[in-house]
Design a protein around this nucleic acid. Structure first.
Lengths: 238, 238
DNA sequence: CGGCACTGTGTGGTCTGACCACATCTGGTA
DNA sequence: TACCAGATGTGGTCAGACCACACAGTGCCG
């Protein structure tokens, strides 16, 4: 039973102190070398534990010396840890409907913002060339659904990238990958793939046109309709 | 560009392969020594990254050799998305500004939708009791910034949960954990914490009131102002 | 006397090399 | 054929060595 892995003991030690109140937000942790000696484990094990705590948002590390930035700092109250872990363990797949609704929110907003910015500031030009290129690529005749889907994904991501918000881009990439399978399955069962793909291509161009026209509300609406229509047609339900 | 911490490059490398589909559940990762050589980082850095992935439930490690238990295995069935998001946010270091902008979009929309649904459908009642409870908890006198921050995080998450969209809830949790450290730091440097906390509490109540009044546009605006005001005041910049 | 550059010290960040325990594979033996 | 001891390679861990950085003095110079 004493088979506990070394970094675990470090994690448990800190977690215990957090729950006890011995460590409170804002406190400094002992140095890595001190923890290592105190707990009888190697510094590398201490670091593995600290890395976990850091990624979980419980800790902030800062090199150098001095009071404000010398050691490691607890950044979050104790209960957050188990909560975070539970949350992440419980994540056994999201409902597709939730993914779609989130796409709607994010992408509509992105399209609207692009249009607004393009209308407002000429200083920092918005680069839609990537989107244009993908638009053309999707016009290739006899494109298989899977190939179209890949280009479509790139197109939507290109708009997000044009917006410059890395978080939205990454989130969209994640969402997309989460439903890729469903999306492909939906396309494969379509009655008239040719007609659908033509409609989707038209909608894509409409979105870009609305952005270029600096028509934010149209860009938002077209994006919204494009995505919701897509999932409605491909019969993707929760 | 060598600014990136070594273990992050490992994390990003694996994350990319996961999103690409190059690594699928059940696959074996290269050995720690191989990864170390391949990415040009030390084995200790590889281990720190693997430890994070393990705690996040994305990976299983097993000592020894042989096919079934030799290397490291991707253990995720596909629900890894929230873990991935948290990873992307917390580990790959997004600009704080992007995180804030994404919060603005997501949370404003959530508040607006809650208000709309509360006004429309009486069939499926919206449960705001958790939010109410946290509202009261935040009224405790002499609450330290860190404690307030924890309750604040729970409050915002409670609204997301009330909306029922699991993706948004998970994303918000990830975003939040990604900037917790910065947020705390910002609060610690405030001139008048008492006044600020009182204002924030008032804004919280205003948001909930707007939702209860089924006033979607007000709920959206109040949420937007609350969040953007918060980050403006705490001087959190990218 | 006041400010500024320099040096010392301790921290996290990283790499390397070395063990250990274990699961597996190998090959030889009964 | 059946079985068992060594070879092999993996993750788990440790110790030691640098580096870059942030700070606290220190002391020269204006």
């Amino acid at each position: 039973m004493s088979e506990t892995r070394a970094w675990r003991t470090v994690l448990e030690h800190i977690e215990t102190q957090l729950l006890d109140g011995a460590l409170r937000p804002g406190d400094h942790l002992p140095g890595e070398r001190a923890l290592s000696a105190e707990l009888g484990v190697g510094r590398s094990s201490v670091r593995e534990a600290l890395r976990v705590l850091e990624v979980l948002g419980l800790i902030r590390t800062q090199a150098g010396s001095g009071p404000s930035a010398g050691a490691v700092i607890i950044a979050t109250p104790g209960g957050a840890m188990s909560a975070l872990m539970r949350l992440q363990v419980a994540a056994s797949g999201f409902p597709v409907a939730d993914i779609v609704r989130t796409r709607l929110i994010l992408e509509s907003t992105v399209a609207g913002e692009l249009a607004e910015r393009l209308g407002r500031e000429a200083s920092e030009p918005i680069d839609l060339s990537a989107a244009d290129r993908l638009l053309d690529a999707m016009d290739s005749p006899a494109l298989a659904p899977a190939e179209f889907l890949a280009l479509d994904a790139e197109f939507h991501l290109a708009l997000a990238e044009a917006s410059g918000n890395q978080v939205i881009t990454a989130t969209m990439a994640g969402l997309r990958s989460g439903i890729e399978g469903y999306a492909l399955e939906g396309l494969a069962h379509l009655d008239d793939w040719q007609a659908t793909s033509q409609r989707l291509r038209g909608e894509h161009r409409g979105i870009v046109a609305a952005i270029r026209a600096a028509d934010a509300s149209s860009a938002r609406a077209r994006t919204h309709d494009h995505i919701s229509g897509y999932y409605a047609e491909t019969s993707i339900h929760h």
